[in-house]
Design a protein around this nucleic acid. Structure first.
Lengths: 340, 340
DNA sequence: TTGAAAGCGCTAACAA
DNA sequence: TTGTTAGCGCTTTCAA
């Protein structure tokens, strides 16, 4: 049962200041006598000491805690960002707290409020609504914020993301070169800036294709869910176009829903159907279909976000900026399946 | 810039007590005059108020925070548990903080220390070492702990998990019935109790098979990584047995490593190779091979863990116990791939 | 029905 | 080199 500073001071006969100095490693700096130091260190070695973070936070008005708010931590992309961010935090003696907003602006706002109330030192945020002024607390201005993955029009500040425009452009071109004569881009809500950028990239890549309007199309739906994917796919199949030789999916959920719908109608997935996606999963490598994936570098995103945040937290001047983190285009399907 | 209670009291002319009572919704209980109440509420409506969690924690010696420590939050199983737990916490006004131990006992211990120092109210833990006595703080006994997913021999307390023995048993039987005449179980370290239980289940399921020793075998390796998977697979292929008709993988990492090794040697994965695993991913559904997956119910695990923890946090008597959460056996591969 | 005051454990300014 | 002290913002007991 570790002691408090007060108890240590009483039991050793030294003052709270002396004990604090020893504990915080400032014994040398303040020239605490070796004897006092030894006594206190021995005492702690024997009885233990654990600082009280609440007391420290109250006094210092900082908490050694940073917050991460993302739409869904069960999404592999965000899970990987979280894992890396948490590692970085731990290395710096910080604690990471996380919230999934579920794309719900209300949840996002409440989480922000709550974190500010807790005296959080910094926030990494993937917003689901345009960013209003951040709440600030009575004792100090609001904590610094770094946005990752997406940013709404008009929002300013520090932003780390993949280049969604370029990703979609590259993906689309690769699929066309790979032989997709017609591509449907099935994606979630266009109120998501990432979606918009990808659509732009897609449009750009097809702009020089003959008869682009007939062979290439974007279909979006507000609900980025499996059901949404089914509906998008259903509509596509019901349309004059029918199933295109290539499909790009805005998310894994839509991918799954669409696949389900194809199966429901055809009984199976045509093995020559070319799929493109931005959601990397190792397991995609085992699909019989040709698959193109834009893989994002979650670790680099987390690292940049963390570094920016640390600078801001230390009040170091840092110009508002947008850092692009490189992506990697992977192609699965060169491993043909064979029967033994 | 929200005010503190003191400021509100000064500005409205009421005392801190009165303000506190109104803020905490105890106005009726303490019969605050409607007028005082109205004045204070108006003031807050205008200027805002945000409680200071550090001050409250210090005073109450609790933090409305619970901690989750898992080996790796980027692992889909734990990511799903985290997402659900975080939702449950939010509904109760609690905040969830997470740490990935990376299977490193030192990190685990430090995380525990750190969380106790922060006055965490409860801990959900997937331990990577036998549990020692939990650190307790000077102000109070240590927070309650609920273990999930695995528990070491001799550890006691509250434990929620799938039935790993039964899962492996069911999986193995299904694969045998599905036609796997020989199965190799490739898995991570046997110092992980989950691994041991699965091995037992596997052994039990093959016990009535003729010539079991020749056709069924367990191969384990200490490093649960892709490289480990490659090595396990390499050793299997080099052995007298060679590739068995069925393979069970202890983790997705080992699955990936093993697949990579097969490809490296054969150029492709035999489509009739039967795979079994405990790591559910939607994308497994698209594999050309027959795949059996034991899907765990992460939401139920999170829910039980949370409920147990809440009981303990409220000092409600709760007998140490082990809750098993049902799993589901899925079979992918009935959707045959076809060429259009 | 409201107010005064103590104190949670810590830090840091100031004093000795 | 060490000690004293004043809060940080909040809750809560006790008094009025």
């Amino acid at each position: 049962m570790p002691k408090t500073i007060k108890e240590i001071a009483q039991d050793t006969g030294y003052s709270r200041t002396t004990v604090t100095l020893v504990i915080n490693g400032k014994a040398d700096e303040y020239r605490i006598s070796p004897k006092a130091r030894a006594v206190i260190e021995n005492y702690i070695g024997e009885h233990g000491y654990r600082y009280n973070q609440a007391a420290r936070s109250l006094k210092l008005a900082r908490s050694n805690t940073i917050a991460l708010i993302v739409p869904d931590i069960a999404n592999a992309f965000f899970a990987r960002v979280t894992a890396e961010l948490e590692r970085l935090c731990r290395a710096e003696g910080l604690v990471l707290v996380t919230t999934s907003s579920g794309e719900n602006p209300l949840v996002e706002r409440q989480a922000l409020e709550n974190f500010v109330a807790r005296g959080i030192d910094g926030i990494v945020l993937t917003p689901c609504e345009p960013r209003r002024r951040l709440p600030s607390s009575s004792s100090r201005p609001g904590p610094p914020v770094v946005l990752i993955d997406r940013r709404f029009d008009g929002d300013e500040g520090y932003f780390i993301s993949s280049n969604h425009f370029e990703s979609a452009q590259t993906l689309t071109r690769a699929m066309i070169e790979g032989g997709a004569g017609a591509i449907s881009f099935l994606t979630g809500s266009q109120s998501n800036p990432t979606t918009l950028q990808r659509i732009s990239g897609f449009r750009d890549a097809i702009s020089d294709q003959p008869d682009a309007a007939r062979h290439f199309a974007v279909r979006s739906i507000d609900t980025d869910t499996e059901e949404g994917g089914r509906r998008l796919m259903g509509d596509l199949l019901d349309s004059g176009t029918g199933l295109t030789s290539g499909l790009i999916f805005g998310s894994l959920l839509i991918f799954n829903g669409a696949m389900r719908e194809i199966r429901a109608r055809y009984g199976a997935i045509p093995t020559d159907l070319m799929a493109g996606t931005f959601a990397y999963s190792e397991v995609l490598d085992y699909m019989p279909n040709p698959v193109y994936v834009v893989r994002q570098n979650e670790r680099a995103i987390a690292r940049h976000a963390f570094e920016s945040l640390l600078c801001l937290m230390q009040k170091q001047p840092l110009a508002p900026s947008h850092i692009f983190v490189a992506t990697e285009l992977l192609h699965f399907g060169s491993h043909q399946s064979v029967t033994e």
